[in-house]
């Protein structure tokens, strides 16, 4: 539990909301594009807070770099002026749009808050904090249960529990007793002998993931240098080229098709 993570969460959250509001009300498309870049940076910060480091980098490179350069290029190429830049005069359908937006937001927030009983979460946390204060050894107190409440993302005890569960899961996968997804809906059959081709052998990955002492007793799961592994390049990319390899290749086809389509659309005359 840190001081900086919640602070940065609120900074990035308010930054994201303010910049996205500014994007939709700003009159000049150039300002809109620049504000949208700021918005994407706020989102990248939120991804880092959620330990999705790979996606934070991709967000800055692809969204903040490639897509926004495309937008800015088109805006400057079109050089809009005159009737294309009329001020947003107030119209009746603005009211309708904003009212329906508020209704949709309240509905979705209501659904989220109905799924999470915030009072229960607060009670549980208070009880846990009280337990921690009373106990002589903080390690003896059981970590906060995660089933009845959506857990705080940065409670160390919880993180340890989650990481231990993850580690146990990976070990079970290596032993061939369970699927890594722990899947209710998985087609993984523990009875069957799965033979992976050499290049897809998870063993090197497991060694990297769990360290050389993977077979020993679990011990404290948070070890310096190992804690931040979730969401970094290695686990994400290994999953990307193993389990999700077909969508990954189809993405290449999609990008090729979109390049061809964009060129044909933007050409003056197709000969």
């Amino acid at each position: 539990m840190g001081f900086w993570e919640p602070l940065f969460f609120w900074i990035f959250a308010f930054g994201a909301i303010i910049t996205s509001c500014a994007v939709i009300v700003s009159r000049n498309p150039l300002y809109c594009a620049l504000l949208l870049i700021a918005d994407f940076f706020c989102f990248a910060g939120l991804y880092v807070l959620l330990s999705a480091h790979f996606l934070a980098v991709v967000q800055v490179l692809v969204y903040g770099g490639a897509i926004m350069v495309l937008f800015l290029f088109i805006i400057m190429l079109l050089n809009l002026r005159g009737k294309n830049l009329v001020a947003n005069r107030f119209q009746v359908h603005y009211l309708i749009a904003i009212a329906s937006g508020v209704v949709i937001f309240l509905f979705s927030a209501g659904v989220i808050l109905a799924a999470v009983d915030m009072d229960e979460v607060a009670d549980e946390r208070e009880a846990h904090a009280a337990q921690l204060e009373e106990a002589d050894d903080p390690d003896e107190v059981e970590p906060l249960a995660t089933d009845s409440a959506i857990p705080n993302l940065w409670v160390d005890a919880e993180e340890r529990a989650v990481e231990e569960a993850y580690r146990a899961k990976m070990l079970a996968w290596r032993d061939g007793t369970a699927a890594p997804s722990d899947g209710k809906y998985s087609r993984f059959n523990p009875e069957r002998e799965y033979e992976l081709p050499p290049s897809l052998d998870p063993e090197p990955f497991m060694e990297a993931e769990l360290g050389e002492d993977a077979d020993e007793d679990v011990g404290p799961a948070i070890v310096p240098g190992r804690k931040g592994l979730y969401g970094t390049f290695k686990p994400v990319s290994i999953k990307l080229v193993n389990r999700f390899v077909i969508p990954f290749e189809l993405t290449a086809v999609l990008l090729l098709a979109s390049i061809v389509g964009a060129v044909i659309l933007a050409k003056r005359r197709v000969t």
């Binding site: 919640p6 909301i17 959620l50 927030a109 989220i112 808050l113 799924a115 999470v116």
Partner: peptide, 10 residues
Amino acid sequence: EPTLAHFLIL
């Protein structure tokens, strides 16, 4: 402290 719900509402 932000929880999952905070991220979802954002």
